[in-house]
Design a protein around this nucleic acid. Sequence first.
DNA 1: GACACGATCTGT
DNA 2: CAGATCGTGTCG
Length: 206
Amino acid sequence: MMQELVVVVRHRHRVLEREFYNRDTSLVAKELIGKWLVHKENGSILRARIVETEAYLGLSDPASHLASGFTKRTSNIWGHPGKAYVFLCYGIHACLNAITVDWEPYGCVLIRAVEPIETDGSEDYGEIIVRSDGPGRLTRAFGIDIGHSGKDLTKDCIQIWTPKDESIESPPRIETTTRIGISKAKDMRLRYYDSNSAHVSKRSQV
DNA sequence: GACACGATCTGT
DNA sequence: CAGATCGTGTCG
């Protein structure tokens, strides 16, 4: 009886399993909107709600780091669903991605923005709620760097959770646009965001 | 080795 | 709109 109750409580948030990631990259990008990004470190937990993502379609996508095949930096990570892929952009910013399918053309999802999670105060985990719009800002807020590249999002210190009661949370209104900041494949509409959120990194995109 | 480049952000 | 800043890939 007591055992059962404990189980229920512990499952209020569920860690996304590998099967979630091992699907069509665009679908994963879309479905990551509204999920929780979590970083457990030194006994504290940072978490926030994902409101903006972009899909990168591996070998078939000129804007992807796999555009000209696997390299040292991408091998052993791309093609392994649920792994984190973190790279340094412009020498300054770490960008966090979730690796998707284990079949060609492979893929990953860039986490571009998160927003604070509304809480009713009924939880006493002591999490710190983080606000950050933009891929470089969110990694800085979460303390994520390229040393985290290759970590397993299904069990290591960085995870993505399904909210305790997704159906009751205000549902995301998902819109699609072209991706931001790239010079190739500008026409591919692979950016997803929650237009109900005030924390999307860029507004007025087509 | 040397060199060019970039899925960004900030300050002017 | 220029500049910061550095890991990575490419070329020699």
